[in-house]
């Protein structure tokens, strides 16, 4: 494997990590608000808080990792995406900032207000919507380079079916992933009433997720035929994704093996996300930038990869400790600690 491919794979893994942990967090925010306005807050609030409190900070880091890493491995992306994404990027920063800090204010400041809850819920849907702009733009046609000046075509972005399809896919996926996880967490916590509520959420978002997924798949065919035909070559990965989706939904439906169901959901998104990503290669930004012309020098690439491996050796045991204490410790999950 060339350095370029190793680099993009590393980054893609982190983005996948973010996709899962952030979806849980974003969806939880929405469900928390939704249960607030439907007077079911007392039922689900507890499990959401118990899970989120110790891990919220970690979530953000996955994202920072991705965008700092991509500038390290592919410095030219800073030039293209940095110039084009000033407004959507700034909006995403502001939403993330409001979300993160108000979560902490509400949790540690120990004041439960309607505004905090609303901010937390609303940003949970708006952040994925604004972040996916990057993936949309990468398909090409939303950006022009004129005399070395990079410009984003807002008209094109806001009127294209594909870009809206991606937005809805992102939101539905967030809700589905989150509900599937919370179902598992509630069952571990032996919290029957909460389990009933979040299980219903999971089942109701399963349909919209898979339908928009399929719709976006075909919309991409119109948008970027090259990428689409590459994706068709990887049809079996999308096949696995579909099968795992069905299996997960059936398990949740039958009230069985919620843990396995969540793992299947993770596999569903892993296969689809990596199939999408590897079919996108070699382009980082179609048709302007590939992983080969935007790559950093070999010395830096090697240093980054070594740093990455060293970092993982440090992080994985720490993450395992975190999960053992808060995710797999039955007493903690059940609220006895």
């Amino acid at each position: 494997m060339s350095y370029e491919v190793v680099g993009i794979t590393v980054l893609w893994i982190f983005l996948y990590g973010y996709l899962i942990v952030a979806s849980i967090d974003f969806g939880a925010g929405f469900f928390s608000y939704y249960s607030h306005i439907t007077n079911k807050k007392h039922v689900v609030h507890n499990i959401i808080q118990r899970y989120l409190s110790p891990v919220w900070e970690v979530t953000n880091v996955f994202l920072v990792f991705f965008f700092v890493g991509i500038v390290g491995f592919f410095p030219d992306t800073a030039y293209y995406y940095g110039t084009a994404l000033l407004i959507p990027g700034s909006v995403a920063i502001i939403l993330l900032a409001l979300r993160g800090s108000y979560y902490a204010f509400a949790t540690y400041g120990a004041k439960d207000s309607h505004l905090y809850s609303f901010l937390y819920g609303a940003t949970g849907l708006l952040i994925p919507a604004s972040l996916t702009t990057v993936l949309t733009i990468s398909e090409g046609g939303y950006l022009v380079v004129d005399n070395g000046n990079v410009q984003l075509l807002y008209g094109e972005l806001f009127t294209s079916a594909y870009s809206w399809g991606v937005v809805f896919l992102a939101i539905f996926s967030v809700l589905f992933i989150s509900a599937a996880f919370l179902t598992y967490y509630a069952s571990r916590a032996k919290d029957k009433p909460a389990l009933e509520v979040v299980r219903k959420y999971a089942l109701s978002w399963a349909g919209p997720t898979i339908i928009t997924g399929i719709v976006v798949f075909f919309l991409l065919g119109k948008r970027n035929p090259v990428h689409f035909s590459n994706m068709m070559d990887l049809w079996w990965m999308f096949g696995i994704s579909f099968v795992t989706f069905v299996a997960a939904t059936v398990l949740i439906w039958k009230r069985r093996n919620y843990g396995t169901a969540f793992v299947l959901v993770m596999v569903q998104f892993f296969t689809a996300f990596f199939a999408y990503g590897s079919a996108h290669l070699p382009y980082l930004l179609y048709p302007y930038l590939t992983i080969y012309d935007g790559f950093t020098n070999d010395a830096m690439a090697l240093a980054l990869i070594i740093a990455f491996i060293g970092g993982l050796l440090l992080l994985i045991p720490s993450l395992i400790l975190l999960m053992r204490l808060f995710l797999f410790d039955a007493d903690y999950v059940e609220g006895k600690k």
Partner: peptide
């Protein structure tokens, strides 16, 4: 780019 990247690791470690 290297220390920029490493800084995230350090922060990650701290956050956990």
């Amino acid at each position: 780019g290297l220390p920029l990247f490493l800084e995230i690791f350090a922060f990650f470690f701290e956050a956990i």
